[in-house]
Design a protein around this nucleic acid. Structure first.
Length: 482
RNA sequence: UCCCGGGUAGCUCAGCCGGCAGAGCAGGUGGCUGUUAACCACCCUGUCGGGGGUUCGAAUCCCUCCCCGGGAGCCA
């Protein structure tokens, strides 16, 4: 079968009848099937249970959390091929759908025919008919999506990705595609990956021995983006309300369960909006995503709840309805100071909140999601709007229990003089950023936005404790496969 | 990058004050007419992470490197 004909089997059963498998997805069989219907399904064997004269196969095709039970009796010609239907084998099964007489599943297929596409030698196939640790599965990233757990995670990831677009499109936001390769090296304090086509074994040098990027592909030093925000700003200052949803890269040597070198980020940016609008949007957005995850992925969430206990259907329902607590940084510091709690790091106005402080606020004080606003200007980025007090900026961090910061946002500084001063004080090369200042010189307006780390969202919804388990191909220091 | 904890059968782990390398699961074979990570019986399974050292003798003690996990910093 050619790749093209494979596509036809998925999307059209009318165009090329001679190559059709007339395969039904297990998801559809279970939700729309009726007893007596002839069905053909394709998938991978999860388990096989043999008894004298009858055998049961649990088949998964990735379309849904549930497996489909195939019943093969002694009288079926398929009985002869059972020895090859081992865990992991790819097969096609045809038969008649019937209501299952036993507990555990509504439907099953009385199989008349089985075709093996690909065997899986049980002695060497790494996925056994037993539970595996997430650490082990991380080592076989190409096979782990075949497990219940990762099937659930990646389906939930898809549900959330769709929901992101649904939310913004429903509110008239325009999806903009900001660049993956950028020349702005001042977006964040973080280290960036250089993009170059220079010969690494003999780099051209300029005066002082520094690499001469004027000879590079773009004629200047280029990087992988660490944020689409700055570009999203000029699109918001023309299109109104926009959002980005794409990959982001950080070259930091972070070895944690919450960081990736390549991750996906969602960054809405709104013209004619202030911090309050920003907070409202963040809250509506987050709650919408929780709601959609439950509506479209309840069986996945329920599975993850049952086996890992770090997420729950009830908890997400609660979150989807409960409003967030709002607190200013100044009040948060006061709250921490009066708590009497022994912290490893000091709590003092002007110092950034540490993970332990954030966790104390979400887990102990408010027992839920908290938005902290109005941080001291010294600990936040140059583009954030200076408040009237001259000490704080209109920033917000959305903190969720266990994960910590999931959204970071702010109202942007729209006054050209204030922004210029903050840039030079922060060591930002103003001469390279004239385009950014132009937005404040010509038709400037209040605007605001935030960034949401998509994997942290998936982590939060699925309850996965390690961020490397919510993306198919995790990239981290010294970790790159495929 | 720093601080802890680990690396022993395909997987999960016990063995670690030196003295014949183990269990459960998985796998194989046989049994069982409806199973649900089926069940019962028997069988198979090793570079004890790599290298070096101490010792009559090292999975066990020492040094070193690599890898994994948890926490911290940076952040989303």
């Amino acid at each position: 079968m050619t790749p093209i004909s494979k596509l036809f089997t998925l999307y059209s059963i009318h165009i090329v009848p001679e190559v059709i498998m007339q395969r039904l997805r297990i998801k559809n069989v279970l939700s729309e099937g009726h007893a007596g219907q002839p069905v053909t399904v394709c998938g991978w064997v999860r388990t096989k249970r043999e008894s004298k004269g009858i055998a049961f196969i649990a088949l998964s095709d990735g379309s849904t959390q549930d497996t489909l039970q195939l019943v093969v009796s002694e009288t079926s010609p398929a009985f002869q091929i059972l020895a090859r239907c081992n865990t992991g084998a790819a097969i096609k099964a045809a038969g008649s759908l019937k209501e299952s007489p036993a507990q555990g599943q509504k439907f099953e297929i009385e199989v008349s025919e089985i075709e093996i596409f690909g065997d899986a030698d049980p002695a060497s196939y790494p996925l056994q008919k037993k539970g595996h640790t997430l650490e082990f599965l991380r080592e076989i990233g190409h096979l782990r999506p075949r497990t219940n757990t990762f099937g659930a995670i990646f389906r939930v990831r898809n549900i959330l990705a769709e929901a992101v677009h649904e939310f913004f499109q429903g509110r008239g936001f325009i999806w903009v595609h900001t660049p993956v390769i950028t020349a702005s090296d001042c977006e964040g304090a973080g280290d960036m990956f250089t993009v170059t086509s220079l010969p690494l074994e003999s780099l051209p040098r300029a005066a002082g021995g520094v690499v001469d990027f004027s000879q590079d592909f773009f004629g200047k030093h280029a990087y992988l983006t660490v944020s689409g925000q700055l570009e999203a700003e000029f699109l918001a200052m023309s299109l109104g309300d926009v959002y980005t949803f794409g990959p982001t890269f950080r070259a930091e040597n972070s070895n944690t369960s919450r960081h990736l070198s390549e991750f996906w980020m969602i960054e809405p940016e709104m013209a004619f909006a202030d911090l309050k609008d920003d907070m409202l949007l963040a809250e509506d957005f987050f709650r919408f995503l929780c709601r959609r995850a439950l509506e479209k992925g309840e069986s996945e969430i329920a599975f993850l709840e049952k086996f890992y206990k770090n997420t729950s259907v009830a908890g997400l329902k609660d979150l989807a309805e409960k409003s967030f607590v709002h607190i200013t940084y100044t009040d948060a510091v006061r709250e921490l100071e009066k708590s009497g709690e022994k912290f490893e790091f000091p709590v003092k106005w002007g110092l950034d909140l540490q993970s332990e402080h954030e966790r104390y606020l979400t887990d102990k004080v408010f027992k839920g999601t908290v938005i902290v606003t109005d941080y001291p200007k010294e600990i936040k980025a140059f583009y954030m709007k200076m408040n009237d007090d001259g000490r704080t900026v209109a920033a917000m961090d959305v903190l969720v229990p266990k994960i910590g910061e999931i959204i970071g946002g702010s109202q942007r500084e729209e006054r050209v003089d204030v922004l210029t001063e903050r840039m030079s004080k922060s060591g930002i090369p103003v001469e390279n950023m004239q385009w950014y200042l132009d937005l404040r010189r010509f038709g400037s307006a209040p605007h605001a936005g935030f960034g949401l780390g998509f994997e942290r969202l998936v982590q939060y919804i699925t309850g996965m404790q390690n961020i490397r388990d919510v993306i198919p191909c995790p990239r981290a220091p010294r970790e790159i496969k495929f």
